[in-house]
Simulated scan of single mutants.
Amino acid sequence: MRWSEKISIQKLRDGDKDEFEKIYFDLFDVLYALCYQYTLNKEISEGIVQDSFLRLWEIKNELKEKSNIKNLLYTIAKNNCLNYLRSQQIVWKHLNHIKAREFSYASQLLHDDGDDFLEFEELLNIVSEAIEKLPEEQKQVFKMSRMEEMKYNEIAGKLNLSVKTIESRMSKALKFLRIELKDYLALIVLITNILK
Rank of each mutant, 00 (worst) to 15 (best):
E5V: 00
S145P: 15
I191V: 07
V91P: 06
K17N: 13
F25G: 11
L185P: 01
K17H: 06
E19D: 14
T39Q: 08
N71L: 10
L134C: 08
F20G: 02
E19K: 11
N96T: 02
E102Q: 03
N71Y: 12
R178I: 05
W92S: 09
N96D: 14
E119A: 09
I126Q: 13
I44D: 12
A156D: 05
A106N: 06
L195F: 00
E43A: 07
S67M: 06
N68C: 02
C35D: 12
S171A: 11
I76C: 04
S171K: 09
K99F: 10
R2S: 14
S168R: 14
L34E: 06
N41P: 03
A77T: 03
Q138F: 01
E62I: 05
A100G: 13
R101S: 11
D115Q: 11
T75F: 09
E137D: 09
S52V: 08
I7K: 09
F117M: 12
K11D: 08
K93G: 09
E5G: 05
A173S: 03
N41Q: 05
K172Y: 06
L82C: 12
D29F: 09
H94S: 11
H111E: 15
A130H: 01
P135R: 06
S162H: 08
G15A: 06
S8C: 03
K182E: 12
K196T: 15
L181P: 05
E21C: 07
S168K: 11
R101Y: 06
I59S: 02
I191E: 04
V30E: 11
D26L: 10
A130E: 02
K42L: 09
K66F: 15
I44Y: 00
A156I: 00
L109W: 07
L56C: 09
L124H: 05
F20A: 05
L110I: 15
K60N: 15
K151W: 05
C81M: 07
K182I: 08
A100N: 01
E167D: 10
T192N: 08
K11S: 12
S67C: 11
L34K: 14
K6P: 07
N68V: 00
L34C: 10
E180Y: 00
